[in-house]
Structures are given as structure tokens and as C-alpha cells.
Design a protein around this nucleic acid. Structure first.
Length: 578
RNA sequence: CGGGGCAUGGCGCAGCUUGGUAGCGCGCUUCAAUGGGGUUGAAGAGGUCGUGGGUUCGAGUCCCGCUGCCCCGACCA
């Protein structure tokens, strides 16, 4: 490619709104251009990087018996209604065609795949199968951000496995995990696989592939001692503390202006771990909030811990929660700031009368608590679980954090930020059951197909590569995903004969099958061309100039290194081919 | 959805406090010089100041509405 013919150009300054390094560099170096919030055009260089990642993905998927196909991005509403996700996936883009026909833009492709499986898979002889495709996904994200990090329209490799049984899926699963590590390693992105919440995907378990990064959106828990790693939405930890030997009497004390745990603990003179925090949520079964649907959920956790919403939802068996309003709280007889389970009658379940009181198991690891009196401005001291208040359900709903005890080895865990670049889900029969996708086993009996789904966002992966591979001058692409292998730079003035030599080398490299970006622009100083080369970040820089010719040929420099060496053209070809 | 910020030429910004018909750097065009780290000089092109309304003799500037974009949070397959 001749730079003199390339579409678009590099920018000296990035747009002010670009904050992430990858965002700034990808725009400055002419890889991407913004179109709207969460929408980007991949310029020619950028698209070449996407194609490189594409090829790596295809190779790794093919290596584990994957078959690449291509599914539509426009889906009939019926497909999504059949699995129940038409109304439960909040980020689903919905649109209407002529008349009343409704469609969804593909947010993912479980629906299409399970519908295909329903039609194509008849016998156990048709299993197992693995199909994948690389195409656009559309999600109405409330807040796109970070350039390519979170988009409304993005490119995803999504693979789907169809198996006879859970055991068969379990057997295959590790090869997919390995393929994922291969993909990320080949792209120069070392990842950590962590246990994660399955979220709206449904299913049993999932592994998230993340890259530790200070500006990542995910928080995960890691144990340096044993290697335990999990997303905070799923991370477990050991509750520490003991029940006191003697239980104090329940005593009401006046606590003026004590609306937070810290206030109360300081006022009474106890550690926060000797208090119980009460948090109110409004739970509803579907994302869409309908008046009259849903109910208040009262969540309790020991005062030194915090509640994790996702864990709470899982403990409730699904649905959605938001913070309850003050009116909703008062309606059940609790007082915001002075609330506790004392005096409340816990419901047996979501459908039963009474107040749903969810408590973290941590309240069992302590006692003689300071809790709200449900009366302003009073708290109780000496409150004990079981004697003074009851709960609907004890569950693991507290968020693990730095300093807590590892559930595996008892070591100290740490909370870290990370970017999620891939996710593997064991879906089980979540989708096949919804549409009754079955096969006939050896006995002629219909059995549900076991599914798995496995995604990698190409755009986000590209951004992460840049986050990990750059310096003050620009991008430093790993060879595997670089848009070109060689950045050929010509420096010289008209009539000095250098241009002809550069042109000849360009033709020779092309003939040898080398991917070359050739800076053939006339009249530019060496500084401009070198700055652009550094910004664009192609692995090899090859310079043809009067100086290089005097020294016998071409000057060769790795983008990642500072040394330069002079080689003959033959040596250069040998280097690139070797 | 809650909080904050921004919107002036392709990009980065000034002008707004105190209303008087828009300016700087980069980039772009032309010419000349330079020719190994965003080089230099000269001459140019390019903006109904996001949008709708209001106040005013007069609005980029003041007031109200809307839209878009960015950041934090919520949310997030």
C-alpha cells in the first residue's frame, strides 16, 4: 500500500474526548473514526487488523472442530420470544418493519443457533457439533465508552457447541478454554480466566477471560497464593469472626444523627463488624418495570461488608433489583437510616406474605450487634440473629474485597480491575428446552441438546492489544495482528536517485509476498515520516535513503527496539522470510 | 436512569464575565527553500459559532427548550 494513496491520514492531536490510550492512538494513527456514540468506522488499516484477528480466531476454532458459518443480524421477533429473551434482554435493539412485523438486531446468536439445531439435529449421530461465526452484534448499551471498549455495534466471534449430554460438554469444554488462551496469546494479550456470573445468558457456569488493567470495567478477586480468581459478582470468601460466648440483652439507645454505619459504630464505640447494615432493594421479575409487579427486598450484611447486587439477585433466584425508594421502604414499616430486621416478620419466599429479608451468612459470624430500631433516632445494642430477629434466607450475598480470606486456601485475596475480552458459558439446556430442541438417542428416545456459547469481541480485543502495546510515540503492534509487516520509508530529494531504489524494493517485497506499507510521499522531511511510522506502529521499519544506500542498502529497525541495522536487500528478504 | 462537563473550519483551542458581525496553532492549497525525528518563509482556501425559540437596534456572547458527545455512577450477554 502506498501511503500517498491511503484513505485518511494521521492526526497530530487526538480528539479531546478520547481518554483511553488505545482510543487516542487508534484515532490518531488512522485506524478508526467515530460515527456516533458506540459506533466506529474501521478505516483501511483498522480493518486489516480486524482481519488479522479474524484469521487467528478462525484458525483456533477450526483446530477444535469448529465450522465457520454466517448468521443474519436481523432476527424475527418470534425467535427471541420463543426463548423468553424478547422482554428480558434490556439491551436488545428492537425494530418494526412494514406492518406489524417486529425484529431484533442480533445481540448474540443463541436464538438463531438453537433454531437451527431444532431443524438440523435429529439423531445422536448428528452430535457433537461446533459452529461459529464472526459478525456484528448490536446492543443498546446505556453508556458506550472508551473508544472500542464498549460499543453499541461491535464485531464478535461467537461459537456454539451442541452436545448429547452435560458430560460430553464437560469433556469438550477444556479444549475451548485452551483455544481461547491460544487466541489471546497469539494476539499478545495475556489473560486470566476467572469464574464469573452467568448473567442474562443463563446456564450453569461461565469463565471470563480478562486482562488486568487499571481502567477495566470489571472487578475480580484474585488469590496470589493459590491462583483462585473470580469476578466479584461470583467471588466467594471466608467470613471471619465468631459468635460471642455470652449474649448481651437487647437494649434500645438513642443515636441522634447516626444514619450511616460509620456514624453509628463511632457513636456507640464498636467496630463496624459489630453492626448490621440494612439495604433496601426493589425486586421485580422482568427488566421492564410494571406498576404493581415486584416487591421490596430487605438485605442484611455485617457492617464491615458490602452487598453485591448480582449475588443478591442470584440468591433470590433471578430477576432484577434496584435501590428502593424511601416511600417503598416506609410502606413495610422500616425507617431508612434506622432499619433492621428486629420487629419484622420475614416472608418465606418471594410469593409469600411478609417482608423478604435476605441476609448474608456473615451475620452468623458475630453477635451483640448494633442494629436499627426502626424508629428515629434509636438503635438497639446486643441484637443477635435468631434470638432477636429472623430472616427469610441466609445466603452468600456479600462482596469479596481486598484483605478477605480466600475460599480455597485461606490466603489473602485482592480485588483488581480488568477488561473482559472473552467469555465461555456452559448453557446446558437453557435454550434447547425453551424450543424443545431434541435429538433421538440410541434407544430412540428424544433428549434435550446441551449447549455452550463462547464469545470474543474483536474490536475490544484490538483495543486491548493497543492498551498493552504502545509507547509515547504510538502503537507497537505484535507481528501477529499488525496491519502490515513492513513500513518502507523513502527519504530523499528529487533527482538523487533514492526514489527509484525505494520503488524497486517496494515491488520486490510485494513480489515476495511481504505485506508492505510504503511511505512514498514526496517532499516530506524524514522527521514527519518517522513520526508517522512510530504512530502507526508496524513491526519492521525499513528506510531507503542516500545514507542507507551509502552504507550498502537499507536501514532496518524494529518498532519495539531502538537499534537500527544496515542490511542489503537480500539480507532483508532473508530476515523477513526467516 | 442519577451526577458532572462540553458543543466555535478536518483536529486542538481562544473569544462569552462586560452583546457591536469571528481569531490562533496543527492540517489543507500554491510557490520557494530544506532534506535522518512532526523543518522554514511567503501567499491562500475553509466557519449562517450543534439546534429551535426568546430578549435586543444588534446575539458566538444573555434567557428558555431540544439534540448530540464525553466522564463518574447505575446498568452491562
Amino acid at each position: 500500500m502506498r501511503l500517498s494513496h491511503s484513505f485518511g491520514k494521521t492526526l497530530r492531536e487526538a480528539p479531546a474526548e478520547a481518554e483511553l490510550v488505545s482510543h487516542q492512538l487508534l484515532i490518531r494513527a488512522n485506524y478508526i473514526r467515530p460515527v456516533g456514540a458506540g459506533m466506529y468506522t474501521f478505516m483501511p488499516f483498522g480493518y486489516r487488523v480486524i482481519r488479522k484477528i479474524w484469521r487467528i480466531l478462525a484458525e483456533e476454532m477450526d483446530a477444535i472442530d469448529g465450522q465457520e458459518m454466517w448468521m443474519p443480524n436481523l432476527n424475527p421477533a418470534a425467535l427471541w420470544q420463543a426463548t423468553g429473551r424478547w422482554n428480558s434482554v434490556d439491551v436488545l435493539f428492537k425494530l418494526k418493519g412494514n406492518g406489524n412485523r417486529e425484529y431484533a438486531l442480533s445481540a448474540t446468536h443463541e436464538e438463531v443457533v438453537v433454531d437451527l439445531a431444532l431443524r438440523e439435529i435429529e439423531s445422536y449421530r448428528d452430535l457433537p457439533r461446533m459452529v461459529y461465526h464472526i459478525s456484528k452484534k448490536f446492543r443498546d448499551e446505556p453508556r458506550p465508552r472508551g473508544g472500542l471498549m464498549r460499543l453499541r455495534e461491535f464485531i464478535m466471534k461467537d461459537a456454539y457447541t451442541l452436545d448429547r449430554s452435560e458430560a460430553a460438554l464437560d469433556e469438550y469444554y477444556p479444549s475451548m478454554i485452551q483455544a481461547y488462551f491460544n487466541v489471546f496469546n497469539r494476539c499478545g494479550v495475556p489473560t486470566v480466566a476467572i469464574n464469573a456470573d452467568v448473567g442474562a445468558m443463563g446456564g450453569k457456569t461461565s469463565q471470563e477471560f480478562t486482562v488486568p488493567h487499571p481502567q477495566g470495567e470489571d472487578v475480580f478477586i484474585a488469590c496470589d497464593n493459590c491462583g483462585y480468581a473470580a469476578n466479584v459478582e461470583a467471588a466467594e470468601f471466608v467470613r471471619e469472626g465468631e459468635r460471642p460466648a455470652t449474649l448481651a440483652a437487647l437494649t434500645k439507645v438513642e443515636t441522634p444523627d447516626c444514619k450511616t454505619i460509620a456514624d453509628v459504630a463511632a457513636f456507640i464505640g464498636v467496630p463496624t463488624s459489630q453492626t448490621i447494615k440494612a439495604v433496601f432493594y426493589w425486586w421485580r421479575p422482568r427488566y421492564v418495570e410494571t406498576p404493581g409487579e415486584g416487591q421490596l427486598v430487605f438485605a442484611l450484611v455485617r457492617g464491615d461488608l458490602a452487598i453485591n447486587d448480582t449475588k443478591l439477585v442470584n440468591a433470590l433466584g433471578g430477576g432484577f433489583v434496584r435501590a428502593a425508594t424511601e416511600d417503598e421502604i416506609r410502606a413495610v414499616g422500616a425507617v431508612p437510616g434506622y432499619a433492621s430486621g428486629v420487629g419484622l416478620t420475614p416472608a418465606q419466599g418471594l410469593q409469600s406474605p411478609g417482608v423478604m429479608v435476605m441476609a448474608d451468612t456473615s451475620i452468623e459470624y458475630g453477635g451483640n450487634y448494633v442494629v436499627g430500631a426502626n424508629e428515629e433516632p434509636y438503635h438497639y445494642t446486643g441484637a443477635n440473629y435468631g434470638r432477636d430477629f429472623a430472616v427469610s434466607k441466609l445466603a452468600d450475598i456479600a462482596q469479596a474485597d481486598t484483605g478477605h480470606k480466600c475460599p480455597v486456601c485461606g490466603g489473602r485475596i485482592e480485588a483488581k480491575r480488568a477488561i473482559e475480552v472473552g467469555h465461555c458459558f456452559k448453557l446446558g439446556t437453557r435454550y434447547s428446552a425453551a424450543v424443545n430442541a431434541t435429538y433421538l438417542d440410541e434407544n430412540g428416545q428424544p433428549q434435550l441438546i446441551y449447549m455452550g456459547s463462547y464469545g470474543i469481541g474483536l474490536d475490544r480485543l484490538m483495543a486491548v492489544v493497543v492498551e498493552l502495546h504502545n509507547d509515547k510515540d504510538g502503537i507497537i503492534w505484535p507481528d501477529s495482528v499488525a496491519p502490515y509487516q513492513v513500513h518502507l520509508v523513502h527519504i530523499g530529494k528529487e533527482g538523487d536517485g533514492t526514489k527509484a531504489r525505494a520503488e524497486a524494493l517496494y515491488e520486490r517485497l510485494l513480489a515476495a509476498g511481504v505485506e508492505v506499507l510504503y511511505d512514498d510521499r514526496d517532499g516530506l522531511g524524514a522527521g514527519v515520516k518517522f513520526k508517522d511510522a512510530d504512530l502507526i506502529g508496524i513491526p519492521w521499519r525499513v528506510t531507503v535513503s542516500a545514507r542507507s544506500l551509502e552504507q550498502g542498502g537499507v536501514e532496518v529497525k524494529r518498532r519495539s527496539a531502538s537499534e537500527r541495522q544496515n542490511l542489503t536487500e537480500d539480507q532483508l528478504l532473508g530476515l523477513l522470510k526467516g
